[in-house]
Structure formats: structure tokens, C-alpha cells
Amino acid sequence: MQAVVVERFGGPEVLTVQDLPAPTPGPGEIVVRTSAIGVNFKDIYEREGRAAKPTPFIPGSEAAGRVLSVGPDTSDFAPGDRVAFWSAPGSYAEQVRLPARAAVPVPDDVSDEEAAALLLQGLTAHYLITSTYSAAEGETALVHAAAGGLGQLLTRLLSRRGVRVFGTVSTQEKAVAAKAAGVHDVVVVNDDTNVGSSLQDLVRGRGVDVVYDGVGRTTFEASLKVLRPRGTYVLVGAASGPVDPISPQDLAAHGSLFLTRPTLVDHATERSELLDRAHELFTWLRRGDVEPSIGGRYRLADAATAHTALQLRRSTGKLLLFPERSESRPEPAPSAAPTSRR
């Protein structure tokens, strides 16, 4: 079995493909033969050593494929079943062993590629707009990295609720993608941009009801200032680095703000909750409420190229890896054109 291995922390160059023994499922476990593997910023944090994960390890946590074998005391799945998962360490591999309770069934009308591109970010978008802050018609939201996989999903769902969405992106090309997803007003923010004044110009002096921020350090302080009194700041990631410490008094000074740093693991603690969220997510997919935007397809051996594209913010949408034996045809280019279900 081939897998990508990190033997030392560092840049994308530390991702090496190795031949490893095939895994065997234990009690309550399954082994999945992967066909499409999701790439996420979390994988970069792990590769760099920011996740306190000991080396060597196989990165990744998200993929879709077919059950290859099941262990004792496993009744939820059988060999040949199509499944997807978002929380199984070591997904950058041709075969992945995981607890059966961590996998969700993939409906017949959803492709492996769609499931791998949608599950983690789709479930995240689901809890963000249903559990963290349920934005309503007539409200306003600021979505950072609005052209990314999560950003586009959030934008589509918020827009369908009648929420006016403001968005930030890093390039003019991404501004087009953000607009297509439903962003009403967008601004390009990069290292040369005065983020504070750009955000004030973007929202035209009106405080927004909620901020969804996956960028972190470079957008945090300025975003607090564009929230309305009693607005909600949702920190969902740190692509630009962790935010600086903040005093609770600062939240009072900005207008009695709410600040939260939620994670998906705390919103799918029970299997029933995971399955309910996944079921509704796939229903949204059928209705066209969500649409996975695939911004690049790479061979498993080209994981380093995918990491570079994601880390340098060259990509628009979700990046996927494909094992060599996959029937899909990955494109080795650093950033392929986004594709959609329709």
C-alpha cells in the first residue's frame, strides 16, 4: 500500500510517498480503500509541527471510498459499501483503517469525489449556520476567504437564507468565484492591503451581524471593528497564523461582542448527530443548496504540490488527492479550474 509520510516537520518537501503494510481492522473498525482524499489546512498545521503530533505519521483525515474489510463486532458496514469520513488520521493513503462509527454512508447519487470534497467543509458549514450562529433573512455576514471551499459553502447557504454576504479574497480571480457563490460585495485583501480601511469600506460603515473567519491573525482585529454591538465573531481557522491574545474587556469595548472558536468534533460528538448532519448535507446537495467547488486534482504522489497551492492561497475551492489506481483522472497542475455538480 502506498501512503504519504511525514518523517520530520517542515515544508511541503517533507511529504514523501512510501510503501507500507496494508492495515488490518480491529474490533469495531473498518478498512477503506480510498478513491478521493480531501486536502485541508489542518494537514498543513500537522506537517509543520503546529499540531503537536509525533513523527512519523501519515497526514490527512478526510476521504471517500469503499469498505475493503471489517473487523470483529462491526455491523454498520460490509465490504463494498461506499463511505466517507472526515476524522480518521492518516487519510493520505490507498487504504485507511478507522472506527466504523467515524464513517458515514455515501448515497448512490453522490460521487466519491463529491463526498470527499464536501464532507468536512460541508459539515463545518452546517454546524456554523445551524448551531453556532443561525443567521436569518435580512441580516449581514462577513465571510473571509470567501472563494475557498468552506467560504463558498457558507456563502451559498447564507445567501439562500436571505443574508447579505460581504466577502474577502486574496486575488481578483477569486473575487469572481466569490461573486458566483453569492457574495454581494467583495474586497481583495493581501499583504499590501490596509485590512482595516478595506473592511470599513466594504461594509460601508454598517456593523455586520456575524463574522466567519478562517484566516486568523491578519483579519482578526480589523474584523472585530466591523461587527455591530452584540455581534458574533466566529473564528473557524488560522490560515495566516494564530490570533493574538485578547482580553474579555476588549469585547466589551467593541460593543459587548460574542467570540467563539468552535470545532466540528464538538458538534458531532454522538454518532446520531454526525449521521443527522450528514443526511441533511447530502439533501442540500441534491437540492442545489450546496455545491462542492473542486479547485484542483492531484495524484497522491503530488501531495506536496497540493500543499503548496493551498498554503500560498493559489487555489479556489477544494483540493483533492487521488491514488494512482483511482479511476478519476487527476490534473497535476497547481490549480485546476473549479468544477461543480451541475
Rank of each mutant, 00 (worst) to 15 (best):
V215N: 07
V215S: 05
G216R: 06
R217Y: 08
T219Q: 10
A222N: 03
A222Q: 04
S223K: 11
L224D: 01
L224N: 02
L224F: 07
V226G: 01
V226Y: 05
L227V: 02
R228V: 06
P229L: 04
R230F: 15
R230V: 09
G231N: 07
G231M: 05
G231I: 04
T232E: 03
T232C: 08
T232M: 05
Y233Q: 08
Y233M: 12
V234Q: 06
V234D: 07
L235N: 10
L235Q: 12
L235F: 03
V236E: 02
V236R: 02
V236S: 10
G237W: 03
A238I: 09
A238L: 13
A238W: 13
S240V: 08
G241M: 05
G241K: 05
P242C: 04
P242L: 05
P242K: 02
V243P: 06
V243R: 08
D244C: 02
P245M: 13
P245Y: 12
P245K: 12
I246A: 04
I246W: 09
I246L: 15
I246T: 11
S247I: 03
P248Y: 09
P248D: 03
Q249S: 12
Q249G: 14
Q249A: 13
Q249R: 14
D250N: 11
D250E: 13
L251Q: 07
L251C: 04
L251Y: 04
A252V: 11
H254K: 02
H254R: 10
H254T: 04
G255E: 08
G255S: 09
S256D: 14
S256V: 05
S256L: 13
L257I: 08
L257S: 07
F258D: 10
F258R: 15
F258Q: 15
F258K: 15
L259V: 09
T260W: 01
T260V: 14
R261W: 01
R261N: 08
P262C: 02
P262G: 02
T263C: 03
V265N: 11
V265F: 09
D266P: 01
D266H: 14
D266F: 13
D266K: 09
H267R: 11
A268R: 14
A268S: 10
E270L: 03
E270W: 01
